[in-house]
């Protein structure tokens, strides 16, 4: 019942399942302030959406969620547009590299493997870090010690690099090189994995660029709009892997879920939930890893012949 045919993915899916998936991921991201793309894309693959389409359509969905988020931050004056602009320049380079890489890997039949391996690596790392962090915080809480904030900024290797620029909003005078590099790495992640890359961008801004925490979220969301929009365009042109109907349904679910998630997040205690999210992230990583190491029931697969576009 309520089956809907996806015109590009060319499969029939249950409308409610897709709406609920978008809603659940939106709920989690509203609650934790994370993008949720790193959960959405693997779940789309579990539902049988071809990985390349799941990745590209995931990026398309993030355009919508990051616009809403960035507007809220913009109104509060928490966006450093200069920093965002430089990140976008780096990010565009990264996205082009990533999309061409996906196109090349697809023609060699290695795209699915690369996407899965990328997810296992990133979800495994993030999940472990998050779990360790929340276990530590929970222990500290139990021992009655206050939860420690981040250390004050100190000079690092970043400050010795040339091409210095002034970033007023962030009160920084640093080289553009690390900013461009961070932008490029996130651009590759967005185009290959279909994630927003906030989980990498935010720590990089805090620990490498030493940006004030107040502008980190807003600036990250601001640049993500442009990068995911560019990745959507590039995937549409090079790989034809954007399913507009799937994206539409995911956005609707995500918007509604996000509202409830944000409200729920205000009334709930963080650390236990953070540990729960970490366990979920690890579970998805393990599920993907098992798919790679368990001997498949059929060693042979077939696919239409694809030639690289470049």
């Amino acid at each position: 019942m309520l089956q809907v045919y996806l015109p590009i993915a060319e499969i029939s899916v249950n409308l409610l399942v897709i709406l609920m998936l978008g809603g659940a991921v939106g709920f989690l991201s509203g609650m934790f302030g994370v993008g949720g793309g790193f959960l959405l894309t693997p779940f789309l693959m579990f539902l049988g959406i071809p990985p390349a389409i799941a990745v590209a359509t995931g990026a398309n969905q993030i355009v919508a969620s990051s616009v809403s988020g960035a507007l809220v931050q913009w109104r509060r004056g928490n966006v450093d547009t200069t920093m965002g602009g430089v990140l976008i320049v780096g990010g565009l380079f990264g996205s082009i590299i990533g999309v061409l890489l996906v196109n090349l890997l697809k023609s060699y039949g290695q795209a699915d493997l690369t996407i899965a391996l990328g997810y296992v690596t990133f979800l495994g790392t993030i999940g472990t870090l998050m779990l360790a962090e929340s276990v530590r915080a929970l222990r500290r809480e139990r021992a009655g010690k206050p939860v420690k904030g981040r250390r004050p900024g100190e000079h690092s290797w970043v400050h010795g690099l040339p091409f210095k620029m002034r970033f007023h909003r962030s009160k920084l005078y640093i080289s553009a090189i690390p900013v461009l590099m961070i932008g490029a790495v996130v651009g590759i992640l967005v185009s290959v994995l279909g994630v927003g890359g906030g989980f990498l961008m935010v720590p990089a801004m805090i620990y490498i660029l030493r940006m004030p925490t107040s502008v980190v979220i807003g600036t990250s969301l601001f640049q993500i709009i442009f990068i995911t929009a560019a990745v959507t365009m590039l995937h549409a042109v090079f790989n034809q892997t954007i399913d507009i109907l799937l994206a539409f349904l995911l956005i609707i679910g995500g918007v509604l879920g996000g509202q409830y998630g944000a409200r729920a997040g205000q009334n709930l205690r963080g650390e236990q939930l953070r540990a729960l999210l970490a366990i979920m992230v690890l579970a998805v990583a393990i599920r993907l890893l098992l798919g790679l190491v368990i001997t498949p029931s059929d060693l042979y697969t077939i696919a239409p012949v694809e030639t690289p576009r470049w």
């Binding site: 355009v63 919508a64 809403s68 959507t232 365009m233 590039l234 549409a236 994206a247 609707i252």
Partner: peptide, 29 residues
Amino acid sequence: GVYILAFRHPVIYGLLAVAIALLMGLGAW
């Protein structure tokens, strides 16, 4: 329509995909 647009006019299709997402994000906000 979607299929033809995606494969024959991918640039328009991509712009449309981005525009829909932007407008929906704006609408949600």
